[in-house]
Measured scan of single mutants.
Amino acid sequence: KYSDMIVAAIQAEKNRAGSSRQSIQKYIKSHYKVGENADSQIKLSIKRLVTTGVLKQTKGVGASGSFRLA
């Protein structure tokens, strides 16, 4: 599940300011076997996790910027 992968990526990075979408994508692609549409799936999952309150956006708008666990 992409949401689990995103949470794992943010936990692994341990950046106080949060993790960027690009760094999350890079982590997921190197640690998991994902399909061609992974980028758009990650983007959608990040937006969903922010609206449900699992992630907090520290910089930027939408799916860009930095995110950390709430």
Rank of each mutant, 00 (worst) to 15 (best):
K1L: 12
K1T: 14
K1V: 09
K1R: 12
K1Y: 10
Y2N: 01
Y2V: 05
Y2S: 01
Y2C: 15
S3Q: 10
S3I: 12
S3G: 09
S3D: 15
D4I: 09
D4L: 10
D4R: 09
M5I: 02
M5T: 00
M5L: 06
M5G: 01
I6S: 02
I6V: 09
I6P: 00
I6F: 01
I6E: 00
I6A: 02
V7F: 06
V7Y: 04
V7R: 04
V7A: 12
V7P: 01
V7S: 02
V7H: 03
V7E: 02
V7Q: 03
A8G: 03
A8E: 10
A8H: 05
A8Q: 07
A8W: 06
A8K: 06
A9L: 10
A9Q: 01
A9C: 14
A9D: 01
A9Y: 03
A9E: 02
A9I: 02
I10E: 00
I10L: 08
I10N: 01
I10Q: 02
I10Y: 00
Q11L: 14
Q11S: 08
Q11C: 14
Q11N: 09
Q11H: 11
Q11R: 13
A12H: 08
A12N: 07
A12L: 03
A12F: 06
E13N: 12
E13D: 12
E13H: 08
E13T: 08
E13A: 09
E13C: 11
E13K: 07
E13R: 05
E13G: 10
K14S: 12
K14Q: 11
K14V: 06
K14F: 07
K14M: 07
K14T: 10
N15Y: 06
N15F: 05
N15Q: 06
N15R: 07
N15G: 09
N15H: 08
N15M: 05
N15I: 04
R16P: 15
R16G: 13
A17L: 11
A17I: 09
A17F: 14
A17H: 14
G18Y: 04
G18M: 04
G18P: 03
G18T: 03
G18A: 04
G18K: 02
G18W: 07
S19G: 03
S19P: 04
S19V: 11
S19Q: 03
S19L: 13
S19E: 02
S20H: 03
S20L: 05
S20R: 03
R21Y: 15
R21Q: 13
R21H: 13
R21K: 08
Q22F: 08
Q22V: 09
Q22C: 14
Q22H: 09
Q22E: 13
Q22M: 09
S23I: 03
S23R: 05
S23M: 06
Q25F: 12
Q25R: 06
Q25C: 15
Q25M: 15
Q25T: 15
K26A: 13
K26I: 09
K26M: 09
K26W: 15
K26H: 09
K26L: 12
K26Q: 12
K26D: 13
K26Y: 07
Y27T: 01
Y27L: 03
Y27F: 07
Y27I: 00
Y27V: 01
Y27M: 01
I28V: 14
I28M: 03
I28D: 00
I28Q: 01
I28G: 00
I28T: 01
K29Q: 06
K29Y: 10
S30I: 08
S30V: 07
S30Q: 11
S30Y: 06
S30K: 10
H31Y: 05
H31T: 05
Y32G: 02
Y32Q: 01
K33T: 10
K33A: 11
K33P: 10
K33S: 11
K33H: 09
K33W: 06
V34T: 05
V34D: 02
V34M: 05
V34C: 07
V34I: 05
G35M: 05
G35D: 10
G35C: 15
E36I: 11
E36T: 10
N37I: 05
N37P: 03
N37A: 06
N37E: 13
N37M: 05
A38L: 12
A38N: 03
A38D: 04
A38T: 04
A38Y: 06
D39N: 10
D39R: 05
D39E: 10
D39C: 14
S40D: 11
S40N: 12
S40E: 14
S40C: 11
S40M: 14
S40Q: 13
S40T: 12
Q41I: 11
Q41M: 14
Q41T: 05
Q41D: 10
I42M: 01
I42Q: 00
I42K: 00
I42S: 00
K43Y: 14
K43L: 15
K43D: 15
K43P: 03
K43C: 13
K43S: 13
L44F: 07
L44E: 13
L44V: 07
S45T: 15
S45M: 14
S45H: 14
S45K: 05
S45N: 14
S45L: 09
I46T: 00
I46K: 01
I46L: 13
I46M: 05
K47L: 11
K47E: 14
K47G: 07
K47Q: 13
K47D: 12
R48T: 09
R48K: 11
R48I: 14
L49K: 01
L49Q: 01
L49N: 01
L49T: 00
L49D: 01
L49A: 02
L49S: 00
V50T: 04
V50Y: 02
V50R: 01
V50D: 03
V50K: 01
V50W: 03
V50A: 03
T51K: 15
T51W: 10
T51N: 12
T51G: 08
T51P: 00
T52I: 13
T52R: 11
G53R: 04
G53W: 04
G53Y: 02
G53P: 01
G53C: 05
V54H: 04
V54W: 04
V54G: 01
V54Y: 06
V54S: 02
V54E: 03
V54T: 04
V54A: 04
V54C: 07
L55G: 00
L55K: 02
L55T: 06
L55A: 01
K56D: 04
K56Q: 11
K56E: 12
K56R: 10
Q57R: 09
Q57C: 12
Q57T: 07
Q57K: 12
Q57W: 15
Q57P: 08
Q57L: 11
T58F: 07
T58L: 11
T58C: 14
T58N: 09
T58Q: 06
K59P: 06
K59H: 10
K59Q: 08
K59L: 08
K59E: 07
G60P: 05
G60T: 08
G60L: 06
V61W: 11
V61L: 09
V61N: 11
V61E: 12
G62F: 06
G62V: 04
G62A: 06
A63C: 14
A63L: 11
A63V: 10
A63E: 12
S64H: 13
S64W: 09
G65E: 14
G65Q: 13
G65F: 14
G65N: 13
S66I: 14
S66M: 14
S66Y: 13
F67H: 04
F67N: 02
F67L: 07
F67V: 04
F67D: 02
F67C: 03
R68H: 11
R68S: 12
R68M: 14
R68C: 11
R68L: 11
L69R: 02
L69Q: 03
A70R: 06
A70Y: 09
A70H: 06
A70M: 07
A70V: 08
